[in-house]
Design a protein around this nucleic acid. Sequence first.
DNA 1: CCGATGACTTCTC
DNA 2: GGAGAAGCCATCG
Length: 106
Amino acid sequence: MNDFYLKVYAVVQKIPFGKVCTYGDIAEYIGTKGSARTVGYAMNKAASAPFYVPAHRVVNRNGILTGKHHFGSPTHMQELLESEGIQIINNQIQNFEKVRWYPNKK
DNA sequence: CCGATGACTTCTC
DNA sequence: GGAGAAGCCATCG
C-alpha cells in the first residue's frame, strides 16, 4: 500500500452516486505518478483493499466497461451501474458526457 | 535486478 | 473501422 493507491482509492470513493470516471482522468488528477494503466492496476488491487472501492464507476475513456470481468461475472458491473441510473448498451455507457465526473471538479 | 503482466491510451496500417 | 504495436508505470515471481 502506497500513496499512489491511496490517492486512486480516495478519488474513486469521491465519485458521487450515479456518476462515473475514467482511468485517464484519475491518473492525470494524481499527477506525475501513474498512468491510465497503473490506475487500472490499482483497481485490481482494490478488490483486496481493506475498504470498499466503487470500482464499477471507473471505466476507460470511451465509457466502455473494460474491467467488468473482474467483478466475478461479466454482467455484475453493468448491473451495478444500471442500478445507479446509468444506462449501458453493448458494454458502453450511454450519455457518458452527462454522467461523467471529474476529480478536480470536486 | 529483470522479465512478464495488465481493469489503458494512442498511433499506424 | 478493426487489428497490431508501442509507450506507459506499478506489481509480482
